[in-house]
Design a protein around this nucleic acid. Structure first.
Lengths: 215, 215
DNA sequence: GGCGTGTTTAACAATTTTGTTAAACAAAAA
DNA sequence: TTTTTGTTTAACAAAATTGTTAAACACGCC
């Protein structure tokens, strides 16, 4: 008999749901087991320890995200279309998994080991993916000079921070979940304008790109 | 005999140091006691429970931050000078207390109770502080139209996110602590330019403002 | 059916962590 | 000096949490 992949996946899925959707970033093995309706010892049977379960999940979710970003930036869209799609993808993901980014930030802040796992030297850097496109834009005078690193940090900051600070934002501005979603949707335009000082284009996705971005 | 304020403060200071500077966001009461070189029970004597110690610290640090922001935005600097000073203050604070923002984000994500404590209805919203200035700038055609809320979110995102994602950024770009500090210093200019498309002005602080911002 | 392999469970052990309490202690007040 | 009040400590209790293990179980295969 082979390891029951279904059960293993179930545990992983339920753990993710607790971490990313319900926001129980410090969920115990018991809570995870309850959620998956299995015995707690099963978690140790499949993943050895809580720590390793975290490793697997973090690794999986980050590499998926990397794939998606890679797909966007290696597509044959124009530079500005790529950025528009990137913003759209990141914000949508944040709406669907409200605590994913919090999880990544907390875990990487907690243990440096985790960071190394995610950012090993071989991995492609987003900044490298846009460097040429960016330089071309700047040369054409369509963008103020800026390094690829700072450009990416500006971009991902404006996409991710409002997701991280969700509860604070909601409270300060007295938003409901409804209005918060609306606010984030609006931000897509806002972010694009902050970067390019012009309106965000409508982008027609290729079926291939669409399939990678959908989940 | 009065409660020994010195001891109480010592515990608070050492806890903050663990949380904000050393990054032990989940430090136990024992670790805090060790750091302050006092018996663990003292923490309960002064703060009743770990939870309440957190409350006190979070409340204190956020209200201090609020004071500083308020001082900046109610000063008689020009709008653009205010923004320049704000960027400078937030980034410098992030360099001095690398985990403060992580602490705020984790704690507010963990328990909604904490959020309410920080953002009670009476509190001044930053967005309200800049609304008029912002409208004036826009009317003069010196800035593209944008709501005060989105403007502030853009601004604080670009200031805070690189602090939250410190370990990730360092790892991806192979930065040392040295180069990371440099990167953040450079960002001050970058952020200002991203917002106003022009160089950041040198600002002469009034002694009063300076004293509030220094700590 | 019986055997063997892999899965699942219940029970247990060990550790960590928080919170309480009673007693020791220090210093000011009577 | 004795009392009183507040501070500090050591020891204890309780709860939560992780990890282990041995036994029960399910299922394919001989």
């Amino acid at each position: 008999m082979v390891k029951d992949q279904a059960t293993e996946d179930l545990i992983k899925e339920k753990a993710k749901s607790l971490f990313f959707q319900k926001g129980f970033l410090d969920a115990t093995t018991q809570e995870i087991a309850d959620e998956a309706k299995v015995n707690r010892a099963l978690i140790h049977y499949y993943f050895r320890s809580r720590e390793q379960l975290m490793d697997v999940i973090l690794e999986e979710v980050v590499s998926r995200k990397r794939e998606r970003v890679l797909a966007i930036f290696t597509s044959d869209l124009t530079f500005r279309e790529k950025i528009a799609v990137y913003i759209d993808a990141i914000v949508d993901q944040g709406l669907r998994f409200p605590y994913l980014e919090n999880f990544i930030i907390s875990e990487t802040a907690r243990s440096p080991k985790r960071v190394d796992m995610l950012c090993s030297p071989g991995k492609t850097k987003t900044a490298d993916l846009i460097r040429e496109d960016l330089a071309a834009e700047i040369k054409k005078g369509k963008l103020r000079p800026i390094s690829a690193e700072h450009f990416m940090v500006n971009l991902s900051s404006m996409c991710n921070y409002p997701l991280l600070a969700k509860s604070i934002l909601k409270s300060i501005h007295g938003m409901t979940d409804q209005t918060y979603r609306k606010f984030l949707q609006d931000r897509k335009q806002i972010i694009y304008r902050a970067i390019f000082q012009e309106e965000m284009p409508e982008v027609e996705l290729t079926p291939e790109l669409k399939s990678i971005l959908t989940w």
